[in-house]
């Protein structure tokens, strides 16, 4: 199975994401890194109405929401790529990221939930 982790003590193969061996309870030797805590905060900008589908936006190179411009108009949320940091968007469930060029604006499909955070150096907006 992809990503499974073998316990050095008892050789049990553990599921991806495991931290302790499910058989003997020993700590597994896994790659450890510093993630970024996601400040989870439903905000007014995310509370727009109208289900538009599913999308996910990755804003690369910045760690603050303020690094990008978000605007709510007529109950919809728009992202404008500004500054020097590269801006990528990714439809949910897809692995391909599409670049939003500088000063280009895209509409984000949202309902009422979003989160930001993710791996180091990234701010991720998931819009469901």
């Amino acid at each position: 199975m992809a990503g499974e982790v073998e316990c050095k003590a008892c050789m049990t193969k553990n599921k991806p994401g495991a931290i302790l061996c499910e058989n003997c309870g020993d700590p597994l030797e896994v790659q450890v890194g510093t993630g970024v805590a996601m400040a989870v905060s439903p905000t007014p900008v995310a509370a727009a109405s109208g289900i538009q589908g599913r999308a996910c936006v990755l804003v690369q190179g910045g760690s603050k929401v303020a690094d990008k411009e978000f605007e709510r108009r007529m109950g919809r949320l728009y992202l404008k790529a500004t500054g020097s940091a590269k801006t990528l968007i990714r439809p949910a469930g897809k692995t391909d990221w599409q670049e939003v060029k500088k000063d280009e604006e895209v509409e984000l499909a949202i309902t009422a939930r979003f989160r930001f955070g993710g791996s180091e150096g990234y701010v991720i907006f998931e819009v469901v």
Partner: peptide, 16 residues
């Protein structure tokens, strides 16, 4: 504040 053990995991049948 939410911290995930892993944000991105490999495609798999079952994960923790």
């Amino acid at each position: 504040e939410l911290r995930l053990g892993q944000q991105y995991l490999p495609i798999t049948e079952e994960a923790e």
